[in-house]
Simulated assay, not measured.
Amino acid sequence: MITANMLSVERTIRELKQKIKNIDLDVLRFLRDNFTIDYYPNDTCIHFNGIAYKNVLLEPQRLKMDFISFVSHAHSDHLPTGGHGSILSSEVTWRFSKRGPLIKDIPDNIELLPAGHVPGATMLYIEDELNVLYTGDFSLHDTSLFMAAEPRKADIVFLDATYGAPDYTFPEREEEKTRLLEAIDYFERVNVLTYTFGKPQEILTYLREHYGKGFEEDVYLSRSIFKKTYIIGDLMRSAGIDVYSFSQNPKRASIMITNRAILDPTRVTITVSGFWRAEGDYHFYLSSHEDYNGLLEFLRKCEPRLIVTLWGPEGSERNLSRDLEIPALSFNELIALLTVLRYPLI
């Protein structure tokens, strides 16, 4: 009996076969010969672990002893959750991983590049018969805590397509930053609602620039935000921020930076994110990712022959392929190519 799911799989395979016709044969062969899919078992079944370039796992769920595991940055959805093995990352990202030794001697054909996004975030660049850029999460803006991502020419780009649809267009960053600081000044007592790592530390650099030395005494950080800020205390100090001087009293501090652990209902709540958040009275679009136009700008400078979207809204790869006239696959399509479809089609 043919079910709706079976029809969906069949349709996906037909679409993938059509897309593959537009990809250069040497690119397909390079993927087939150099990339594999890794799994890990538990008591009842096996689970997808990630893809690997030769012996380098790209952001796996679990570390493995016979692989080097690339970890792009310290957000929880990118950190390995188990296993044992060596980690390829920045030293800052490694502080958060709590697993495995940090690789000191990086293979000669591999380079870690700044990714923007959050402190310690890196992209992976591979020089081989074809060159490969794996972005992880990235952004083209920098702060006093991290350097912006810079495009690098690559035949294949594995792309963070979080905002991979034309509707995602952000305001000019410096103007939005100015409006955020003006709102904090105007309302005097505010909750600033955001994530735990990356965004709150970046906001602290804005406050340091705006208010100057000693501003920390009027800022309270929720427990989880303070913990992660403390872990990168050396970077914060280099930006002129004293992690030991933040207010210990949430009622007395004018600015409370929180991730919902503590939210004072008597204050105006300001949300800061690339996605609109309903919890706030006012929202400011300051993202740690690139909007759609930023993705196009980045890819034009990379000049890839194939784009693989790692995550993002459905159809991201079609949007980018259409607007850049470059072949593109979703990550799931790449998985299909590396398993069921690769040998019959090449």
Rank of each mutant, 00 (worst) to 15 (best):
M1F: 12
I2A: 07
V9W: 10
T12E: 08
I13K: 03
E15L: 12
Q18M: 11
K21S: 13
L28I: 11
L31F: 02
N34I: 03
T36V: 12
C45R: 14
C45Q: 13
I46F: 11
F48I: 05
F48H: 12
G50W: 01
R62D: 02
H73V: 06
H73C: 04
H73S: 04
H75Y: 09
H75F: 06
S76W: 05
G83L: 04
H84A: 09
I87F: 05
L88R: 00
S89M: 05
S90E: 02
V92N: 01
T93K: 01
K98C: 09
G100S: 07
G100H: 02
L102I: 10
K104M: 11
K104R: 15
P107M: 08
D108Y: 10
G116Y: 00
G120C: 05
L124E: 01
Y125E: 05
I126W: 01
I126H: 01
E129N: 14
L130K: 07
N131R: 10
Y134K: 01
E150S: 11
E150I: 09
R152E: 06
V157Y: 01
F158K: 00
D160N: 12
A165K: 08
Y168A: 04
R173C: 03
K177Y: 08
T178C: 08
R179M: 10
L180E: 00
L181R: 03
Y186R: 15
E188P: 02
G198D: 02
P200S: 09
T205W: 05
Y211N: 03
Y211M: 08
K213M: 13
K213I: 15
E216Q: 06
F226S: 05
K227Y: 11
R237W: 08
R237S: 14
G240T: 05
Q248A: 13
R252E: 13
R252V: 11
N259C: 14
A261W: 07
D264C: 11
D264L: 11
T266Y: 10
V268N: 03
V268R: 03
T269I: 07
V272P: 00
S273T: 07
F275R: 15
F275Y: 15
R277Y: 06
R277K: 14
E279P: 03
H283G: 07
F284H: 03
S288L: 10
E290D: 12
D291G: 05
G294E: 02
P304Q: 04
P304M: 05
R305S: 04
V308L: 03
L324A: 08
A336V: 02
A336I: 04
A336C: 09
